[in-house]
Amino acid sequence: MIEVLLRLALVLAPISLAAFGGAASMYAPLQHQAVDVQHWVTLREFLDLFAVSRVTPGPGSLLGTLIGWKIAGFAGAVVATLALYVPSSTLVFAVGTVWNRHRGKKWHTALEAGLAPVGAGLLLAGVLTLVRALSEHTSSIVVILAVAAIMAWRAKIHPFIFLLGGGVVCYILYLAGY
């Protein structure tokens, strides 16, 4: 059992640390390792777990948690989650420490001013990617635009209301035959 958990951590941690570009860049190496190399799950099972990870909240890389759960139960899920998020978080923390220590210096201010529009551009690009992923469903485009418009008009509405509303609207559209 310990051996399985150790192997799980040793496979997942490097995948997470090599995932430049967020959770989406983890899918390919995760599939390769879990299906072809370690034979933890079949391709069919992998795709089922992928579908589960898409309909639940949290980063897409939680798929790794499900693979851990599949091969070693609750302990596997815990070890997989730690292996996925602790090393990368530690790295962010280390860089953040250096970043915050130099706050107020001239080069830091310039870095912050220079990186802010890059961050905004990345946010916008991220939205486009997500819109594209949902664009096969016409009803979801309607929901995306409606939520953005309502939020611009009434900023204080709780996000949960939007999530619930989006789900209900698409369910009703489904019943109506769209």
Binding site: L134, S140, A146, G166
Partner: peptide, 18 residues
């Protein structure tokens, strides 16, 4: 379909804040 609607609402919120 309802889950897709929920995800779409989340994307709509992200669009607005972006």
């Amino acid at each position: 379909q309802a889950m897709i609607g929920t995800a779409a609402a989340a994307v709509g919120m992200l669009l607005r804040t972006s």
